[in-house]
């Protein structure tokens, strides 16, 4: 096949264009950002030590602290509930690990669940407006309640049931308001945001701070000296449904 130089240059240019745009499309599909350069970033994570947590079975301090600092209403209708951090039985949280001979007390042991702030969050991938995204600087899966249209695609995508939709106006169910944090409006989705507003002030998450058993340990996974890194290195921990590839960042000690 004969080919002139002009044709060759044209072809070469076109193939580069196709290759570059193809790579961008792939990167978009993978949910990656375009700016490319790896930046020094943190990845916040939390370890839930259920052994310590279960020493105080009636304690709800972490839940109360979260609710009051973020204006999370307590709604009696279980289908309309808003939950950022709450208790579930171990057997329901770690279904795959169920052992039939486990003592009932251990099966029914409550453990704390919240948003997993995944490495590869499906909720972010599906959101049609960018109302939820993974922050580059600290790995928090953030929410912009101004932008959410309430399509609830993220709720279908989240394998952990961590997202709540405001089926009704939350203000009708709030008795006390914290003016430092907004409430939400009806028709948007919400979830735990790892207390980004407290982190901006140099404080830790409210739940970890108030836990009397020190069962919630918060820290940066990218810092080898952090307490979470040391704990994860020195003993076996579990994550919820790791085989799905979402890379959850809440670790459990049973």
């Amino acid at each position: 096949m004969n080919i002139t130089r002009k044709q060759f240059l044209g072809l070469a240019g076109a193939s580069i264009l196709v290759a570059v745009s193809g790579k961008q499309v792939l990167a978009e599909l993978e949910g990656e950002r375009q700016d490319g350069k790896p930046r020094p970033r943190k990845q916040y994570a939390m370890i839930v030590d259920t052994r310590k947590c279960s020493t105080l079975p009636d304690c709800t301090k972490c839940i109360d602290a979260c609710n009051s600092s973020h204006n999370v209403p307590v709604i009696p209708n279980p289908e309309h509930e808003i939950k950022w951090i709450w208790k579930e039985e171990v057997a329901n949280v770690f279904e795959a690990q169920q052992i039939p001979y486990l003592e009932t007390t251990l099966k029914e042991r409550a453990t704390i669940v919240l948003c997993n702030h995944c490495d590869n969050p499906p909720c972010v991938r599906v959101c049609p407006t960018g109302a939820t995204w993974k922050r580059e600087e600290d790995g928090i899966v953030m929410m912009d309640w101004h932008r959410c249209i309430g399509c609830r695609y993220c709720m279908a995508a989240c394998p952990y049931g961590s997202r709540s939709f405001n089926w009704i106006d939350p203000r009708t169910e709030l008795k006390v308001l914290n003016p430092a944090f907004p409430t939400r409006t009806k028709g948007v989705v919400e979830k735990c945001v790892f207390c980004y507003e407290r982190l901006a002030l140099g404080q830790g998450p409210a739940c970890a701070e108030v836990c009397p058993a020190k069962a919630l340990i918060f820290g940066d996974l990218n810092d080898p000296q952090s307490e979470v890194r040391k704990m994860l290195g020195s003993g076996l921990t579990l994550r919820r449904r790791p085989s799905l590839g979402t890379g959850p960042n809440i670790y459990y000690i049973l």
């Binding site: 204006n71 709030l174 308001l177 003016p179 409430t183 409006t185």
Partner: peptide, 18 residues
């Protein structure tokens, strides 16, 4: 605008109103 559907008016709160 609907700012105050979510954002709390702190003075009204102090006055006992929501």
């Amino acid at each position: 605008p609907n700012c105050f559907n979510c954002h709390v008016d702190p003075m009204a709160l102090r006055g006992g109103m929501r």
